[in-house]
Design a protein around this nucleic acid. Sequence first.
DNA 1: CGTGTTCCTGACCATTTGGTCAAACATTCA
DNA 2: TGAATGTTTGACCAAATGGTCAGGAACACG
Lengths: 212, 212
Amino acid sequence: MNQSKTPPHIPTQARTRIQRRNHSAILNAALDVFSAKGFRGATVDEIAQAAGLSKPNLLYYFPSKEAIHLQLLSGLLDVWLAPLRDLDPEGDPIPEILTYVRRKLQMSREMPRESRIFANEILQGGTHLGDTLTTALKPLVDEKAAVVARWRDTGRIADVHPYHLIFSIWSLTQHYADFDVQVRTVLGDEGADPYPEAERYLETLFTRMLTP
Amino acid sequence: MNQSKTPPHIPTQARTRIQRRNHSAILNAALDVFSAKGFRGATVDEIAQAAGLSKPNLLYYFPSKEAIHLQLLSGLLDVWLAPLRDLDPEGDPIPEILTYVRRKLQMSREMPRESRIFANEILQGGTHLGDTLTTALKPLVDEKAAVVARWRDTGRIADVHPYHLIFSIWSLTQHYADFDVQVRTVLGDEGADPYPEAERYLETLFTRMLTP
DNA sequence: CGTGTTCCTGACCATTTGGTCAAACATTCA
DNA sequence: TGAATGTTTGACCAAATGGTCAGGAACACG
């Protein structure tokens, strides 16, 4: 009957200092573990360890493993789509698109865990995302594809399919994060950082593709 | 002490009719389940059900879940690399590369399960593949990258980084299998088959990229 | 100090899951 | 037909895992 012990499950804005610290420690640890092992392969205990907490203690902050995963995913999509959101319809088409490519590649390099977690989720059918894809992703892509279509129809870029252009940017940039092992293996261990070459390659690719 | 009941674990060439049937039924079922749920997410029981067998019966044909996964993976790599293997150094460079792209895209469409299982494996760090990547994949890529480099150095194709060209072909073609859900969601449910458009797009992309 | 709240833990539980085994059932073939 | 060989299964096990809970420790604050 007592209404005590209300666990601070997902308080959005954590109240106490300890809450804030542990909350973010958990999310960060979960990012590590989920991105390395996938949702099923990750164990609550491992996440707790990585966050420096005991399993029950972690469950004190989040109601379930799935809740952690979910909060991670939803928090991610915004960050992930920011570069596309910033594509400026008033800007110079080709530089605008090249900037988008560059920013996306940069995110791949600096946030590979996020990229992998997302890839994993989509690979598995996006079941955890619910209708987020249709409500958040699709409208934005529709909007920006329309921008690209306008650029194309006014002859400012070469003839391209707007949606597939966007798909190609996604796939090419995220490839370096998601398939990191493969890339590094093929390039040999000597060639440490593939990103500078990748950036040059993608710049050339899209310049040649888009120049009228 | 009796040496009886030697289970026909991985007999490579199954002997009896039943063995052949069940063996391939298991592998096919495993392809379904592993590609849909990943290695950790897949359960032996589910694979057995999908193959029309009981779990112990499945374990009669394969010593472990991992063994099934492994046999699947190793059998896959050969098929997967065939198009690259067929890249002909004596052929016409641009048509040769376009053919490679087309075949790779076709495989994406016709074997999405295989593509996803592979993606999943690489995403997780390729731990199950052991050194297969360095012994089987790298040498082939090295060889074909050299071919591309020769074409480039003799001016038969435009200036490109051979390895990143190959990476871009992989990522662009497999994107349609691995991120199928995303692609379909963004394109809307009406536009059923994205592949014809994709093929046209990729043809244009690489033609513009490679024409000297 | 004392009291209420927040934080943390050891012990525990139910379920899932990979895998085993003895015995039953089927098939083959002499 | 019958014995050897091959196939299938129900019952079972041990380990892993997500999650609970009662109570103790730390902290905030009057």
